[in-house]
Design a protein around this nucleic acid. Structure first.
Length: 570
RNA sequence: GUGCCUGUAGCUCAGCCGGAUAGAGUGUUUGGCUACGAACCAAAAGGUCGGGGGUUCGAAUCCCUCCAGGCACGCCA
């Protein structure tokens, strides 16, 4: 039984004793909250709602319950209409540290996901397009969720659903055949391809025949024409080569790169099944699934010329993933502007009668824009991820030169900190907020940032290193010295970690990890300034070393779940 | 026009399944490195929680309405 449950139990018993009336432990637990200030207690039960049941004023109830409470490992006090529970600090510290050490890398984990599979569709880059900051959001969020679900015992399938199908590839082939320079493209693939693609659009405005030519070349890809396929495969290879540089730097891998083209031969089944289930209806020449009863516009399945559409492909992909992976949940980490599309095709799958439709979730995040307006390749209003990472790493390197000139592995650490700083942005705020990109905010390394969290981790490592050098031991700790407020706030943070991880999974909100990391760091840094670890009487040093080690371990684990490295020095 | 989302300190945001004085960071002003890492810590200043109604013992939080911004709304993905 944890302290919270113990408090509820004590409350329940005291209420029965004082009023002879039943307040079950479950009811007490439901009322229980954490006071705004730790000085008020670790847990509290406000007695307002009990006033009607017990027919007494809330402060009187609180008074009577506090007086009768027993069996709680700490003290119980009434404060106005609240019953406040103060956990015994030494016991709390001991239990929390023991749990952290005993569970190690699986602290805060569980087996709730045992035997269950979650598919995560994220990053999902487009062929022949350069990776920009918008992709950073889907990539970082998806990666963090993936790690959290693994931590909770799920089997996960991370899928990079490549945007590798559509008429734009016909355009690209036309552009390449007219203006392409193979050597220039090999040298700088994505910029060169983007340049000729943009040129295609400019020229097509003057010469609409180019569009027809593009459609023709796209049909050739579909028909398996040798030249068309070879070019298409080359574009794809170049894109993946560039993307992999990025993924390698970010430390991200995928289980599958099955993208849009993978489902080319799996579309017929969707149409056939929809027809068979009587869901398909012809409207204005196109085939649709009517969703007016659900208050949504219709979902378009076939164009009037019989070609499939975006939704058709996503339905095919969902059916394939259900058959192949037998997922309990499938998550799509995609920006919020596609919300309607997801609601529509999820609903279609539900109407098809698949029970797993309830496990489909759109994990939407806010639109990323520039200060001057929406991102636009053609207007040059865009920030590319490689450039962002490069500048972040450069800045880190400069700081290292200044502050830690003797640091070994400077290049590696500069990369870890620089990349961590960039990954932080999508993992520190609520997903749904729109984002206006700012270099200053992105490259801020002070305050609530990844470098701050990494710095705190390195500081803990440093203390532990010095302890080893001076042979300070962690044995025979005096946990009583961790009962003071500075140590207790670190302990409280450590104890909260499992709940934080669980909430990330429940709400699909990785930013809670970032918030947790900062909470722990702030608590530890204050502790560090107010209390000495080394050079104290052995039992005191032992206890504070344990606290330091636990903070270091949980911080490293938190950063790991966020996909951020935790160097020992920086 | 319809639907969804957002609006909290100068700026960026927590808090939103109702509870104790609305919190951080950043920026500004100021203090702290001859003891374990100053990418740190501390102090000050900064708020009609977009406006207005309602529900409640109690509302930033729930409901209604208005305003502002973002996004989406049939043959692109």
């Amino acid at each position: 039984m944890n302290y919270r449950e113990q408090a509820a139990q004590a409350f329940s018993q005291a209420a029965v004793q004082a009023f002879g009336q039943e307040v079950t432990p479950a009811e007490a637990l439901a009322l229980m909250e954490v006071p705004p200030d730790p000085a008020m207690g670790d847990f509290a039960v406000p007695c307002f709602k009990l006033a009607k049941v017990l027919r007494k004023a809330p402060p009187a109830i609180a008074q009577a319950v506090a007086a009768a409470a027993c069996g709680f490992a700490g003290s119980v006090q009434a404060a106005g209409p609240y019953v406040n529970f103060f956990v015994d600090g030494a016991l709390f510290a001991r239990d929390t540290l023991q749990a952290v050490f005993a569970q190690g890398k699986s602290y805060g984990g569980s087996q709730e996901g045992a035997g269950r599979v979650i598919c995560l569709d994220y990053s999902s880059i487009n062929i022949a397009k350069r990776f920009h900051v918008g992709h950073l959001y889907t990539t970082a969020i998806g990666n963090a969720l993936n790690k959290v679900f693994l931590h909770l015992g799920y089997q996960t399938v991370s899928i990079n659903h490549l945007g590798d199908w559509g008429t734009q590839f016909g355009k690209l082939i036309v552009a390449f055949r007219r203006w392409g320079d193979r050597a220039a493209i090999e040298a700088d693939p994505l910029n060169a391809l983007t340049a000729i693609y943009v040129r295609f659009h400019d020229e097509a405005e003057k010469d609409p025949a180019l569009e027809d030519e593009a459609r023709l070349w796209f049909r050739r890809i579909e028909e398996g024409d040798g030249e068309a396929l070879a070019l298409f495969a080359w574009f794809k290879e170049l894109t993946l080569r560039e993307a992999n540089k990025m993924y390698q730097l970010l430390g991200i891998t995928f289980d599958s790169y099955a993208g849009e083209s993978f489902y080319n031969d799996k579309m017929g089944r969707v149409v056939e099944e929809l027809r068979q289930k009587n869901l398909l209806k012809v409207d204005q020449g196109a085939s649709i699934v009517d969703l007016s009863e659900e208050g949504m516009p219709p979902c378009l399945i076939l164009k009037s010329d019989g070609a499939t559409l975006y939704a058709t492909r996503d339905i095919a992909a969902a059916l394939y993933r259900a058959d192949t992976y037998h997922f309990s949940q499938a998550l799509y980490v995609v920006a919020s502007h596609q919300e309607l599309h997801f609601r529509q095709f999820f609903k279609v799958i539900e109407k098809m009668g698949y029970p797993w439709a309830g496990g489909l979730h759109h994990i939407s995040y806010g639109m990323v824009s520039m200060e001057e307006g929406a991102m636009s390749t053609r207007k040059g209003r865009i920030t590319y991820l490689d450039e962002l990472l490069e500048r972040s790493i450069e800045k880190t390197r400069a700081i290292i030169e200044e502050k830690s000139p003797d640091l070994p592995d400077r290049d590696l650490v500069a990369r870890q900190v620089g990349v961590g700083a960039v990954l932080w942005a999508p993992l520190y705020n609520n997903r749904i907020k729109d984002i206006v990109f700012s270099w200053d905010r992105m490259l801020n390394f002070d305050g609530e940032t990844a470098p701050y969290a990494m710095y705190t981790h390195a500081r803990c490592c440093s203390v532990l290193r010095k302890a080893r050098e001076s042979s300070a031991a962690e044995d025979a700790p005096d946990y009583q010295c961790l009962a003071e407020p500075y140590a207790q706030s670190v302990v409280r943070a450590l104890a909260r970690f499992p709940a934080a991880v669980a909430e990330v999974a429940e709400r699909y909100e990785p930013y809670l990890l970032g918030r947790f990391a900062i909470e722990l760091c702030q608590a530890y840094n204050k502790f560090y300034y107010e209390r000495r670890v080394l050079g104290e009487p052995a039992p005191v040093t032992a206890a504070r070393l344990q606290l330091t080690r636990a903070a270091r371990d949980v911080l490293a684990l938190t950063l790991h779940l966020m996909g951020i490295a935790a160097p020992e020095r920086m």
